[in-house]
């Protein structure tokens, strides 16, 4: 899985491309924690190219959400693909991790 980020006007966009699984979950957590530590408290994780997520990946996203909130910010997800949407719905985590159509929309009403 490849991670990258870009600081926008009011948030930082993190891209996670590949499979968000047991192998990459800890790396996502580390990556997002680093982005928060560098001063971006509002994070959008763009999942457009995340073709797969399992419960380890979901746990990492929840960890990142908690880290962002502890820093006084928030974390939102965008461009969720069908498999990721299915996992979010089956675990009822779609209520906690609200999905937005695009990264731009995620903080547009704040």
């Amino acid at each position: 899985m490849e991670f990258s980020y870009e600081v926008k006007d009011s948030y930082a966009e993190v891209k996670a491309d590949g499979r968000l699984n047991l192998v990459s979950a800890a790396r996502l957590r580390e990556f997002v924690t680093g982005v928060i530590a560098s001063g971006s408290k509002r994070i959008v994780v763009n999942l457009e190219n995340t073709a797969f997520m399992d419960s380890s990946g979901l746990g990492a996203l929840i960890g990142c959400l908690k880290a962002a909130r502890q820093a006084g910010g928030d974390l939102r997800i965008a461009a969720v693909q069908p498999q990721v949407k299915m996992v979010l719905q089956l675990t009822s985590m779609d209520k906690v991790l609200t999905a937005y159509g695009t990264a731009e929309e995620a903080f547009s009403n704040d």
Partner: peptide, 16 residues
């Protein structure tokens, strides 16, 4: 709980 970071695997398998 909502903010647990692990422990969802088995329930997920059963749902699938």
């Amino acid at each position: 709980s909502e903010d647990a970071e692990s422990g969802r695997g088995l329930a997920l398998i059963q749902a699938l």
